[in-house]
């Protein structure tokens, strides 16, 4: 077990490329911040899976249904791994995290507080939203000084890369498909563009401890700007219109500039007051309560078996 004399000593360790492991006597500030971040990530993976479940039964093909099931299975699998990483930090148990999430006490990514209204929304999530989440996760993986999180992120980033390629295929299918399909995606883009941009969050606090401790490797605004530079021309290239009247290309800076971002919708989601937050959380909570008997029975069976 490694220990540090104070936060300056710990910072030197981090600055020299150190990786913290669960059995280290890490500073409590670091433990709490990393736990909070991993718990938020785990909650988001789980609620992301629930966001996509509405349209999977209606997938317009059996192979597509298999693919979207596999994708959602990956997301729930990521949540599973992340909850274990978080639980090992000794702050909350996995059940406590899940029960707090389903009771509306915890936070998860803004994009998963919105409802997928049509199949094209499913595609928008698979492409726009996953790309935003992928960029964030990759930037965390790049440095990530907490060992168990970094190892789990390696797998998550690899799987999300597959999701993204599939999302792009799905986007191309709608973009190059019938007039109805093109128009469906345009409508979905109008619903999902801003939430996807807002996912990166407002500009980072200069004193963000997660940056200082190299859990995050990039500032929010850096990632957000890079996302906009990539996706504006890509979506326009497919003939879609970005829902931003003030969007312009700055010739001098050679970059796309959006209108001023309204952060109120993001703030609403962070207090579970987004457009679909109530239903999403209530469905999950009802199901968790309805299936409590299974968990209880399995626990009882384990106790009986151990006693025998």
């Amino acid at each position: 077990m490694r220990a540090w004399t104070d936060l300056d000593d710990f910072q030197t360790f981090i600055d020299e490329g150190g990786i913290v492991e669960p059995n280290d006597d890490m500073p409590d500030e670091f433990r709490q911040e990393v736990f909070r971040f991993v718990e938020f990530h785990a909650n988001s993976e789980l609620m992301g899976g629930l966001t996509e479940r509405d349209w999977i039964p209606k997938a317009p093909g059996l192979r597509l249904k298999q693919i979207f099931l596999a994708k959602t299975q990956d997301e729930i699998g990521h949540a599973h791994l992340l909850y274990m990483v978080a639980a090992d930090m000794g702050v909350k148990s996995r059940n406590q995290m899940i029960e707090e999430l389903f009771s509306g006490k915890s936070r998860f990514h803004n994009v998963f507080h919105y409802q997928a209204v049509t199949w094209a929304d499913q595609v928008a999530i698979a492409f726009l939203v996953d790309a935003a989440a992928f960029a964030s996760q990759r930037a965390v993986f790049a440095e990530c000084t907490y060992g168990p999180y970094k190892r789990v992120l390696k797998r998550i980033v690899a799987e999300e890369g597959f999701h993204l390629r599939h999302g792009e295929d799905m986007l191309m299918t709608l973009a190059e498909g019938s007039k109805l399909q093109h128009s469906m995606f345009q409508d979905a883009l109008e619903r999902w563009w801003w939430p996807a941009v807002q996912l990166f969050g407002p500009d980072s606090d200069p004193n963000d401890p997660l940056l200082k401790w190299k859990i995050k490797s990039e500032r929010n605004e850096t990632l957000r700007t890079a996302y906009i530079q990539k996706f504006v021309p890509l979506l326009q290239g497919y003939g879609f219109e970005i829902p931003d009247d003030e969007l312009r290309y700055d010739d001098e800076a050679k970059k796309w500039v959006t209108s001023e971002i309204d952060w109120e919708p993001l703030k609403a989601t962070m207090s579970n007051g987004g457009p679909d937050s109530r239903r999403r959380i209530a469905d999950a909570a009802t199901n968790w309560a309805d299936t409590a008997w299974v968990r209880d029975a399995l626990d009882a069976a384990t106790i009986n078996r151990e006693a025998a």
């Binding site: 899976g49 479940r53 999977i56 059996l62 099931l69 959602t72 299975q73 729930i76 968990r295």
Partner: peptide, 28 residues
């Protein structure tokens, strides 16, 4: 498929989702 994300715990979600994919694969 309608059970995706609604199992009694996460491991069961993953297992039942695999079974659904297999059955759809057989149908295909």
């Amino acid at each position: 498929t309608s059970w995706i994300g609604m199992g009694p715990f996460l491991e069961e979600d993953l297992a039942f989702c695999s079974i659904a994919q297999d059955e759809l694969g057989h149908a295909i």
